[in-house]
Design a binder for these strands. Structure first.
Ligand SMILES: [Mn+2]
Ligand SMILES: [Mn+2]
Ligand SMILES: [Zn+2]
Ligand SMILES: [Zn+2]
Lengths: 158, 158
DNA sequence: AAGGAAATTGAAATTCATTTTCAATTAGAC
DNA sequence: GTCTAATTGAAAATGAATTTCAATTTCCTT
């Protein structure tokens, strides 16, 4: 097991690379690069993890009053399609997005009191999952694994 | 790993026991036993696995035209509270219910083509999950693990 | 066996995130 | 610059989940 030591805000190097990747994706697909998409992608990549469209929209609205909710929503879908963002739905049934690099896969520990989200990666579990699938003749494409409970802070003063 | 060899329809013995348990639960909580709750519980326990409120309602409507959707919905919530049903939300974001015995825990393989759901139980994975939680000082209360992909039937003629 | 308080029911209305619609605007190829 | 197709943002639509409310039913008390 390994902590996904991801920095809360990515270095601006990583962001630039990713915005480049987005541009390529758009061009490939015959989509257009727009001021809105650029600003939304920047804000998203800077904000970091597990944000809802609504949260990202509110943040962006502070700086740019002319960007609509719908465009934020649609841009997150695009970021997801391009592989730059992962879509996650936890127990509260809200769709959240987080920046994602090509290789990086991880799962989540979710605190039922404070809502904090911790990421982890465990290769042994991943291997066992693959074996379970095999035994059923099942070809696994993706999985979802979330542990719900109380984080270090919350379990004490619960 | 072990297949959860659960029969599609429970023996009527198990159903009677469970309906007894529901009655006790209702009495404990100061709730009332009604014709509707009784019929909905029976139908649910007979139908078996992973049904939505809508599906269960449609089935019940065939026999009893006077039972409303709302009551089905509310009764499923009650069955969940009483521990007789588990609430599940898979990738399609619909809330499903399945009969559940106290001890029985399992996770799911979900076919992205035909929608079939296979149940499995893997103690090695469960133990590793507990270890992951421990390493983060996290107290795990429950978890969700779903493998998405293609079942034996679908992977071939995909 | 009534009586009556409290819970339940079912239809309809509401909520709320998400998704679609559409007329006006914009990007970018030529 | 011109033109076409894509994009935008406000508003409307969607759809499952939940709440409301008046009528009905349960079941505890007499
Ligand atoms: Mn994450
Ligand atoms: Mn199941
Ligand atoms: Zn916490
Ligand atoms: Zn299948």
């Amino acid at each position: 097991m390994k902590i996904s030591g991801r920095p809360t805000t990515e270095g601006s190097r990583g962001i630039k690379q990713k915005k480049e990747k987005l541009k390529n994706f758009l061009k490939e697909k015959g989509f257009k690069s727009t001021r809105q998409r650029d600003l939304i992608a920047s804000e998203f990549l800077e904000m970091g993890e597990h944000v809802t469209a609504e949260e990202l929209y509110r943040e962006i609205s502070k700086k740019y009053t002319d960007i609509g909710y719908t465009t934020v929503y649609r841009t997150l879908k695009l970021l997801n399609q391009s592989g730059l963002a992962a879509e996650r739905v936890f127990a509260d049934n809200l769709t959240r997005y987080e920046p994602l690099s090509a290789e990086d896969h991880h799962d989540h520990l979710i605190c039922m009191k404070c809502g904090s989200i911790t990421e982890f990666q465990d290769l042994r579990i991943e291997r066992l999952q693959e074996r379970v699938a095999d035994e059923f003749g099942f070809v696994a494409v993706s999985h979802k694994m979330e542990l719900y409970g109380y984080c270090r802070k919350c379990k004490d003063n619960a």
